[in-house]
Amino acid sequence: MSETTIYLEMNNIKKSFGDLQVLKDISLKVHEGEVLSIIGPSGSGKSTLLRIATMLETMDNGSIKYMDKEAASAENGSVHYAKPQALREIKKNFGLVFQNFNLFPHKTVLHNLIDAPVHVQKRNKTEVIAEAKALLEKMGLSDKEDYYPSQLSGGQQQRVAIARALALKPKVLFFDEPTSALDPELTGEVLKVIKALAEEKMTMVIVTHEMSFAKKISDRVIFMDKGVIAVEGTPEEVFNSDHSRMQEFLGKLKHE
């Protein structure tokens, strides 16, 4: 795996909210074509890590690089970003799928997909529409392109959100607990889509509570606990680890 390109590199990330240190010196790398799952109990800092990686949240210390280009670095709470033009280019490398979908309610499904490619990336509209329709077909939503988000089920909305992120052709796609806002019977359709992407070798970082899913599709799993990476490795290594917190975590899940 070391010979493949490194898409994302985060070094020595620290973050505190007030007196509470949620991330204590975290470093990780994401390689091309890799599916990385981040698991851990609530409050372990996994969502914060994802928000820092996507620059929705600032960090106190550390650095973030995409495709070997520095996007941001911070020391003692003051963050230094790449120049606006460069930063905009860097941000094109990743997309994010939110827990609550965050679709634009006033736009149809199709327009949710094409608006950013057309108006942000200034691409040819006809071409973008053709691609968007292909994406929707892949998501099993061909008949929904003229619907508004409020007319769709949660599972359908999340699939639209995934398609919207893919429409910008990111190199890395982040998922922030993509199924935890969904009714249990709807999670399957979303996980199926993510699995299909994994099979196409899409590079993905997934924060999730779906353990069996993480085990099945991940190339690598990170178990986070109290702001540090407690266990890291292949799914087998992590899920069979004798780390006490990991055992406790899995045990708790079983009893839930």
Partner: peptide, 12 residues
């Protein structure tokens, strides 16, 4: 979340 989604999608 609307602002965050727009931000991630690259809107100014």
């Amino acid at each position: 979340g609307q602002y965050e989604a727009a931000h991630i999608l690259g809107y100014t």
